[in-house]
Write a protein that binds this DNA or RNA. Structure first.
Lengths: 120, 120
DNA sequence: ATATTAATAGTAATCATTACTGATAACGAT
DNA sequence: ATCGTTATCAGTAATGATTACTATTAATAT
């Protein structure tokens, strides 16, 4: 994986924000510093970074992939009102059932839906 | 919501299977009994049924929506080897953090990734 | 039975994402 | 430092899942 200015910028953007941006949100942000960066470059790098485990993907009900620069184990809460995604850094334990079923868990994606303080 | 033979068939198919089929899997299954049913009809009804809460959607890393006829509270395990989706009927508790953050939870989607017994 | 209007089959359009292509740039070897 | 190799880029075309559209059919209340 060779260095590139564009990729470095993309990493910096994702790691620097606590919301969970989609590819095009990252694209628009990147264009502020790198006006000629292409959307394809953003998508290609995001995909690559996610495969490498540098960032994490979050599949939501809005049909677009959200990206998260924080790779530590945590869950998410998504507000049905405003769409905001909130990190939950004290995730629940893995269901006990898993060990009995002979399954090896390597990752988890727990998303809770509901209303945030502002929206209820 | 008026009765229709096609919708009834779609419901019957989803409720009758324990895998978590995608729209086109349901489409091909439906065509065995209703050879002229259209893919659009399948998609339209699945969307409607999910909105009504009759079925549940599952957003996975394979970029297609999976549907689940079981609306009881449960989690899922997805095997990275064979792609099989396994139900976990003893889901973990909601993270304690949520009540302190003033969030109201109305739904959850927990997906665990790893390897099933056959694939490890 | 008739009128109203969801629902359908079939097809076109949308939209996020990925693939392609010729040009550019990173970087190890000379 | 220059050269050669090749990953990466910008720009654009293609893909694939899903949704919207349209004329027709069928469910159901009156």
């Amino acid at each position: 994986m060779r260095y590139s200015r564009q990729r470095e910028l993309i990493i910096e953007i994702i790691k620097g924000r606590k919301d969970h941006p989609t590819a095009d949100m990252i694209y628009y942000s990147a264009r502020e510093q790198e006006p000629n960066i292409s959307l394809g470059t953003v998508y290609r790098n995001l995909k690559q970074l996610a495969e490498e485990g540098v960032i994490i993907t979050l599949e939501t009900e809005d049909k677009r992939l959200h990206y998260d620069g924080d790779t530590s184990r945590h869950s998410h809460f998504i507000c049905n009102g405003c769409g905001k995604i909130i990190d939950l850094f004290k995730p629940a334990n893995v269901p006990s059932e898993i060990k009995y079923a002979g399954l090896t868990v390597t990752g988890e994606k727990c998303v809770y839906y509901g209303l945030c303080g502002n929206c209820q």
